[in-house]
Every structure is written in C-alpha cells, then in structure tokens.
Amino acid sequence: MFELRLVQGSLLKKVLESIKDLVNDANFDCSSTGFSLQAMDSSHVALVALLLRSEGFEHYRCDRNLTMGMNLANMAKMLKCAGNDDIITIKADDGTDTVTFMFESPSQDKISDFEMKLMDIDSEHLGIPEAEYEAIIRMPSAEFARICRDLSSIGDTVVISVTKEGVRFSARGDIGAANIVCRQNATVDKPEDATIIEMQEPVTLTFALRYMNSFTKATPLAEQVTISMSSDLPVVVEYKVAGMGYIRYYLAPKIEE
C-alpha cells in the first residue's frame, strides 16, 4: 500500500508543470525516504531529478518500495483538475496497475477521485555523483527565466561565462548578438532578490536555450535558482521545493567539435 497526502497540493501541480514538457513518460520511485523521479528527455542530453522527502508530507505511507510508471501529460491533466488550495492524496494498492489521485477542497465539501492506469516504463537510471563545482550562481529564478526567454529571441544557444566580474549570458543569431551581465549583489533587503556567485575557477559553457527555457517552467516553485557549472560537465539547474526537496535539471554542454 502506498499513500501520500500533501496539504499544499499546489506544489504537486507546479511540479508536474515543471517536468511534463521535458519528459513524456517517467517512473515515480516510492520508498520510505520519499517520492522521487529521474528521467531523461527523448534526446538523452537533458535529465530531471525530483525528490520530495517523506517527512514533507502530512501523511506518507510506503509499505514496500514501489515504482509507478506514468504518462506525465495525463498525470498533469488530472492534477489540473485539483484546485490550488486542495489537499492532494496519491495512493496505489500493491499489485494493482492503477493509481488514484484524490483532491479535497479546503472546506472538505468537495472530494474528487481520479484514477489513472499505470504504465511499464523501462528507463535507464543514471548515477549522478554529488560533485564540487567550479562555479555556483544563486539568483532570482524570475530573473534567470527572463534572461533565457530574452536570449532565445536572439539565438538558440547561450554561452554562460562566470568570471570574478560576475556571470555573463551571451547569445548570437541572424539578427545580431546579446550580452547580459549579472553582478554579485548580496546587499539587497530581501534574500530572495540576491545574486550570489561562488567561483573557484572561471568557467564558460555553451547550452541549447530550448532546454534552459524548458527548465524555467519550474520558476513558480522557488524564488531562487541555483546554477552549478564545471568545465566540460553538464550544468545543474536546481529549484528547491519548499521544505520538501528539489527539482534538479541536468544539461550536457555543447562541445566544440
């Protein structure tokens, strides 16, 4: 028997909106530590890793480890039927091939049950080591989303360059070129407006903007985004899920042939 109950159901709605465009079908892994997912996009150059820890749920029961294969577009369709203030319960009985989503209105006067068939998805799982990064940028997530959106109107790749001056986002295309430089700015009243750059080494990497724009779908989840970079390694773009865990996106850099 697996059951989780999340009072702030809107978090789960936002999580699905954050991943459904990047990945079609994915396995949710349920264990005593929490509700997690790791999945790659169809070209296998981008990966999303989700972790929602069990202690973050109002109620969490997982009798034995369970993998639930779901079509994320269908799951998102069902979660769209939940109100932003609804309590969301997900449950699956052992040995059944369906999962139930239950939505309770705050005043408990409306209870909805949505049942979805599970799928068998064989996806390879990657071991991602916790690494030290040459540069880590923490900045307002809305700012990062705005930069990715603006630069994608200029070109299809972004060069992200971290130096002691700050972080520079550059793009070029048929109509011209653009450079956006963000400097370290820790002296702001609200911490979520700060831009903090930890740089061990200057690092410059090139990425496809369409993936970066897909990652920024997670912006509603967190005020800040963390971008971790090391030369010739995939970038990690991380959004915290308030008090529960995180969504981490990994993207392979574009390497000069």
């Binding site: 070209s43 150059v45 799982h125 990657l126 790749t157 042939e257």
Partner: peptide, 14 residues
C-alpha cells in the same frame, strides 16, 4: 560545429 553528448557519457548507468 558543436555537439551535445548524451548524459550517460558523463554519468554512470546504474
């Protein structure tokens, strides 16, 4: 020309 290599070249398949 720039290429992106699949992530399994960077991370080990478990």
């Amino acid at each position: 020309k720039r290429t992106q290599f699949p992530l399994k070249l960077y991370f080990v398949v478990t």
